[in-house]
């Protein structure tokens, strides 16, 4: 009987996956190509997928970071930017740009758009799927480019690479800092929480549910369930029949989510440095609160936005300073997993 129930569950997830794929295909016309340079994608290229909205201040460093890692192609959806992001991106020789003015929220927080682009272009490529404020790092990232990692993962027979979000913050109130657009945000956001993360295995999707970090302790201490999910699976050798389920927290089919070791060993993992808390986050929070495009039930997050608008100071004497990947690894936030 339990076996039957399992089969039924598996079938329901299969239906769900196919529904999400169909939905993305049906909605592909909501995207208008601004600059389509996908013709030159080579077989071994590493692709990056992102949806952005008004990220002009970050984009320059974002592109530089991923180019330095060895990402060859950027496939970006611009959701109605008004700050010049679109022109900036359209001029880049390695960026293919689409635009849409549809609702982010009603398109699964941009996933419908990205899913379509991934069906169309990502098959069998290593793909990075991130937001503009997420910078991927991994052990040895300072000396080995991303293709070194993906080649190694290929040899290990691993198609999925987890990298949880590590939220960075400045010392002092967020808005009291000064950030020049184009600068490396991690030069300003130098601090992080090293060991206050809660991990739970979600039996339904088999993904880990990681929560914690500065936002959980500052804004969600009274309702930890609503604290942001930090699980991320941003680097995948993609298959066109796969689909991200919610944000890049989990994937269907479900077995892909089990990229953590369950026998006591240590699988490889990286980190997504989350550079959300630049000074402009305060103004952005006011706008986001108004737009009500937050994941889940937006009303629940009003007090969170209010706290952000108040320019909080996340720093504590227990905060760790960002010094390099070796420190992050020895703290147990990520792991080489045998990649020497």
């Amino acid at each position: 009987m339990a076996r039957l129930a399992q089969l039924w569950q598996a079938y329901r997830w299969r239906i769900r996956r196919r529904y999400l794929l169909a939905r993305a295909i049906r909605r592909r016309h909501r995207l208008t190509a601004v600059a389509n340079r996908t013709g030159g994608i080579a077989r071994n290229d590493i692709l990056l997928f992102a949806t952005i909205r008004n990220e002009a201040t970050r984009l320059e460093h974002f592109l530089a970071h991923y180019r330095a890692l060895g990402v060859n192609r950027f496939l970006i959806v611009d959701n109605d930017s008004t700050d010049g992001s679109r022109d900036l991106l359209a001029d880049q020789p390695d960026v293919s740009l689409w635009r849409t003015d549809s609702s982010y929220r009603l398109h699964r927080f941009g996933l419908d758009w990205v899913t379509w682009l991934m069906i169309r272009y990502a098959h069998n490529h290593w793909c990075v799927t991130v937001d503009a404020d997420e910078l991927l790092i991994y052990p040895h990232h300072d000396t080995r480019p991303l293709p070194a990692l993906t080649d190694w993962l290929d040899r290990q027979g691993q198609r999925v690479y987890p990298a949880m979000m590590l939220e960075l913050y400045p010392k002092g109130p967020v808005q009291a800092q000064h950030y020049t657009p184009g600068d490396d945000p991690t030069a300003l956001l130098r601090w992080f929480d090293a060991g206050n993360y809660s991990l739970i295995r979600q039996e339904k999707t088999r993904a880990l549910w990681i929560q914690g970090g500065p936002r959980a302790r500052m804004f969600f201490a009274d309702r930890p369930r609503h604290a942001p999910t930090l699980t991320k699976i941003p680097l995948v050798r993609w298959n066109r029949r796969w689909v991200y389920l919610n944000s890049t927290h989990s994937i269907l089919p479900r077995y892909l989510n089990e990229c953590y070791d369950q026998t006591g060993a240590e699988a490889p993992s990286g980190l997504l440095l989350h550079t959300k808390f630049l000074p402009q986050v305060v103004d952005k929070a006011a706008e986001e609160k108004r737009r009500r495009e937050h994941f889940g039930t937006p009303e629940l997050f009003d007090s969170y936005y209010d706290s952000l608008i108040g320019s909080p100071d996340f720093w504590t004497p227990y905060s760790q300073e960002l010094t390099g990947w070796r420190r992050l690894e020895s703290l147990g936030l990520m792991s080489r997993g045998g990649w020497l």
Binding site: L199, I210, D261, A265, G332, L333, M334, S335
Partner: peptide
Amino acid sequence: GRPGLYMQSRF
């Protein structure tokens, strides 16, 4: 792995 460590790739 590292005994007693629970993290994103060791659970």
